[in-house]
Structures are given as C-alpha cells and as structure tokens.
Computed example of a mutant assay.
Amino acid sequence: MTGRLNSAQPYALGLFRIVVGLLFACHGAASLFGVLGGAMGTHGGTIPAGTWPGWYAAVIQLVGGALVLLGLGTRAAAFIASGSMAYAYFDVHQQAALWPIQNGGELSVLFCWSFLLLVFTGSGAFGVDGLLAKRSTQDSTQEKQPAAERAPVAA
C-alpha cells in the first residue's frame, strides 16, 4: 500500500500546488479588482494602488498565486508568497493576540506553511517547471548523441 501511495506523491503534490495557488491568486484578484467579493474589510471594494502593505501584498498574491498555480518558478514564487504571509501574520495579526485562532491569522499561517512546503518539495506533477526540466534533459541528451543518431529537427 505504501508503494502505491508513494507513486502518487507527485500527483498529490501537483494538485495541492494547484489548489493553493488558485486560492492565493483569488485573494489577490479580489483585493486588486473587487471580484469574488472584493477586498476584505472594504465591503466589495478594491485596495487603492500603491497602498502599503495591502496593495503590494495583493500583487504578490495574484502574481505569486498564478505562478504557483501554473507550476512556473514554483520554488521562488512560493518563497516570496510564504514570506509575505509570515509578514502578514506577525505584522497584522499577532498584535491582536498570540494564537492564530485568537487573532484571525489562521489563513495567513496556513498559506505561509503551505508555500514553505512547496519551496522544499517543488511543483510536483502537472507543472510547467516539470515540462521545462524534461525538455532541458531531452535537449542535453540529444546534444551528447553523435549527429548520425539524432532525430531530425523539424524546421
């Protein structure tokens, strides 16, 4: 049973990455464009451009979430997203109380640790990172083959 679960790990990780990236991007879109319920605390509005730190956090959420969703530059995007959520927790939420359940910071903590996990695991299956790595491996393998053995390249 463990063998089957281990073989499914890249797919489970890929689905995890897709869901977390999508949810994070939705938060950014809501804050920047007023869609999906709008920015929290503004009753369906948007965060004014350039407002510190909310607008910058929303840009990180939208762009970082989209990159993680696609599995493109996953580790770097997840690192920045994780850091932004750590900042949100310690700067915004922890002032109210020590524990996330008391200060409303559960979502920030969950996103922070989810993205930190992706920093160390990578994108898993279904990501652009994996496709690019495969292509790079194929290209380097072809370069090492003698010219007569290489497959013809379509123009």
Score class of each variant (00 low, 15 high):
A66E: 00
A76S: 11
R17L: 06
A81V: 14
F90C: 09
V128S: 05
S84P: 00
T46R: 11
L15T: 05
S82T: 11
L117M: 15
Y89P: 06
W99Y: 13
V68W: 01
F16D: 00
A76H: 01
V63E: 04
G14W: 03
L98W: 14
A97H: 07
A30K: 01
L98G: 04
Y87I: 14
F16T: 09
W113M: 15
G65W: 02
V128D: 04
I101E: 10
L110M: 14
W99C: 04
A155Y: 00
T74V: 10
L110S: 14
S136G: 09
D129P: 11
I47C: 04
F33D: 04
G105S: 07
V63H: 06
L110D: 01
A97V: 12
R150Y: 08
V20C: 03
F24G: 02
L131A: 05
W55C: 07
A78G: 10
T2P: 00
W99A: 15
G38A: 06
G104P: 07
T141C: 00
S136F: 08
A49N: 02
A66I: 15
L22C: 13
F126G: 03
E106H: 04
K144L: 14
A25W: 05
G28W: 08
V68S: 10
A77V: 11
G64W: 08
A88S: 12
A86E: 00
G28H: 05
L67C: 14
S84T: 14
V68L: 05
F115W: 03
M85H: 10
L132Q: 05
M85A: 07
L15E: 00
F33R: 01
A147D: 13
E106G: 08
A57H: 02
A96G: 00
A25G: 10
L72Q: 05
N6P: 00
A133V: 13
W52S: 09
F120E: 01
L32Q: 07
I47E: 02
F90I: 12
G104V: 09
Q61Y: 11
Y11D: 06
A57F: 07
P100C: 04
S7F: 03
L131H: 05
G71T: 10
A77R: 11
Q145V: 06
I18G: 02
G104C: 05
T2R: 04
V19N: 01
T141H: 06
A133Y: 01
A154F: 11
P146I: 11
G127V: 03
F90N: 07
F115Q: 05
L22Q: 00
G130N: 13
G127D: 03
S84E: 10
L98P: 01
F16R: 00
F126D: 07
Q9V: 10
L32E: 03
F111G: 04
L69S: 07
E106M: 13
G71E: 01
L32P: 07
F33L: 13
A78W: 02
L98I: 14
M40T: 13
A25D: 03
L98K: 11
S82P: 04
Y56H: 10
S84M: 13
R150E: 08
S84V: 10
L98F: 15
A76T: 14
L98H: 06
A30T: 06
I47M: 07
L69A: 13
I80T: 12
G54Y: 08
V59F: 06
V68I: 15
